[in-house]
Design a binder for these strands. Sequence first.
DNA 1: GTGAATGTTAACAG
DNA 2: CCTGTTAACATTCA
Length: 211
Amino acid sequence: MPTKWINGKKLLDIRTWGKHLLLVFANGAVKIHLGLFGDVLINERKKVNRSFFLEFAKGEINGYVVRAEKLKASPDDIYDWCTDVLSEKFDSHYVKELLKEQSKKTIDDVLVDQKIFTGVGNIIRNEVLYRAGIHPQSITGKIPAAKISLLIREAVKYARLFYNQLEKGKRVPFSVYQQEYTPDGSEVTMKILPRSKRKIFFSEHKQRLYK
DNA sequence: GTGAATGTTAACAG
DNA sequence: CCTGTTAACATTCA
């Protein structure tokens, strides 16, 4: 991505929308996505080539295996913060409305849809479904409203916990993701989803299948 | 050396 | 044109 337009500009703000990292300047914003292998380092470098970098009068931002592009408009014009599980503007009523359009899909697909649960990825999907007691292959429209509400609450709660622990340099211990047994000893089943080829982990015993 | 992993999208087939 | 599948990206760790 050309970065000439940033020359001489001050970095005004750093924001996120789900997995998008936004560097905001007066004349535009940069969107960085880390994909599966990406890293962004502040005032640090790796041996391998940077795929994106900005050098300031004092300090630098280095992206490795990232995709960076200039946003075509301001972040507030592009992004809906009401769906971002880590945003203060997250609106569970709004998300509940969006879910009504997804009634025929399985909940595991819907949970990682970035337009509905912005920021939720494979780990959070697996852990949150376990916490809510919902089988990943449940049909979204068949899940009782109270359970949907619980799922949304758990998604926000777990995302915050995950983030807070990371900030402290810790990790949340997984209950099902890449586990063989849940913390209380029930067996964990692993399935590879046919479309995405991603692995889902769940307890047949503790997660109810609504279909 | 092998395989798998916190993700997305362009290209392709039908 | 719409829908679904595959490949590509390219690093790190076990």
